[in-house]
């Protein structure tokens, strides 16, 4: 249970029953395994939920969303969006989950509690078929996805320690 509000939220979303659809969740699992994060960084497995996330995302200083996106890129490529590209991302609905998350963010906007800054780390899926394993191609780029998230955290002055048995 978190009593004080986390300043930074890393949110992995997706459906882990549909292979690469769950890459966002798999990425934050890998992030937790490889790194120690300070207490004010809240790492959330959002699954495919929506309104349940309002409280966690409220007034965050920085929100990093990791999700499968359909960006018309080659399979297993990574998209990194920040600044003005983020609203465009939500408007053009690139992610299968944006309906839920964009509603949450729009609601927070209405409440005057939207995150100050949002970054999207998107992965173009290879397979969305039934199954709990990622495709080989997406599995192979998972470390790179995690590195990107860590780089974003560090560039915002957050101290991220790699765990000894998992060299970064």
């Amino acid at each position: 249970m978190t009593s004080a509000r986390a300043q930074v939220v890393v949110l992995g979303i997706g459906n882990i029953l549909l292979s690469d659809e769950g890459v966002g969740v798999r990425a934050i699992e890998a992030l937790r395994q490889r790194f120690d994060l300070p207490a004010d960084v809240n790492v959330i497995d959002g699954g495919t939920s929506a309104m349940e996330l309002i409280d966690d995302l409220s007034r965050a200083k920085l929100l990093i969303v990791v999700d499968a996106v359909k960006a018309g890129r080659p399979p297993a490529s990574i998209v990194h969006l920040s600044g003005n590209d983020v609203p465009v991302f939500f408007r053009s609905k690139l992610s299968p989950h944006q309906i839920g998350l964009s509603d949450v963010l729009a609601s927070l906007e209405l409440l005057g509690e939207a995150p100050q800054e949002t970054i999207i780390v998107g992965i173009q899926p290879v397979s969305l078929s039934l199954g709990m394993e990622l495709s080989g191609e997406v599995k192979a780029i998972l470390p790179e996805v995690v590195d990107l998230v860590v780089a974003d955290l560090r560039s915002h002055g957050i101290e991220v320690q790699s765990r000894r048995n998992f060299p970064a």
């Binding site: 359909k70 609905k93 299968p96």
Partner: peptide
């Protein structure tokens, strides 16, 4: 509908 049936409509409609 998410649990009544489940996915694979690959093209999310705009």
């Amino acid at each position: 509908l998410a649990c009544a049936v489940h996915l694979t409509d690959l093209e999310t409609r705009n």
